[in-house]
Amino acid sequence: MTRDYAWRTGREAILAFGQPGQPTVLLLPPLFEEGNRTRALLVAAMRMLAVHGIASALPDLPGTNESPVPTLDVRFDDWCDAVAALAGGPDLACTAAFRGGALLDGYAPGLPHWRMSPETGARVVRDMARATALTSGTKAGVLEALARSEPTMLAGSTLHPTLVSALADTMPADDDRVRTVRLEGDALPADAYLPGKPLWRAAEPGRDDVLAQAIADDIADWIDACGAR
């Protein structure tokens, strides 16, 4: 079920479930370490989408997961181009973006965008700077300014300043067909609140099949509401 996809000059892996001809969800995972912590959740949701008769695809973005691209070499445009290449795939019904992945779904234009706990780029960068500040003894604001000017280790990844700057200035795209879900207890506005814990913040990767089922059910309903199958 692991295939690969071409973007600009490179190839990256893509984990795919489902049958050809089924409506397909393009998942855009959280960025950086949050992607590792939530991978089991996303894969469980993909299996449950298959029960709904919905196919799904979870790509490695350049420089993430098993990508051959070193993290330091990644630029924000690489991710935009990779998503644009993926958006040309067959049978796509919608994107499903998680956390910082929502910064990229606008590069798959024309598709409905389902989002879980979307983040602004500024908050993605601030979170990583904050996590690093407490171990390095440098204030988060100082670290963030440094990361915008030279390669800097943030939360375990050494990132290029052009990536950090572009990320920090990016917001999820405005679009007419967006559904936003968050976790119960979250104070921010959303179209629905799902039961579960913020696995992306947990110290260790975990899984939550109740949340995965709620995600799959909500995406399936959204696809139907959009008339995408």
């Binding site: 904050r130 996590a131 407490l134 939360a155 979250d186 104070a187 110290a203």
Partner: peptide
């Protein structure tokens, strides 16, 4: 609660209470 976990803890408290924690306060 190691130093990496502190960041997640504080940010999650911000989200659930609708507050902003200044890093100088940490």
């Amino acid at each position: 609660l190691d130093s990496m976990a502190v960041a997640g803890l504080l940010t999650e408290i911000e989200d659930r209470l609708g507050i902003v924690i200044d890093d100088d306060d940490v």
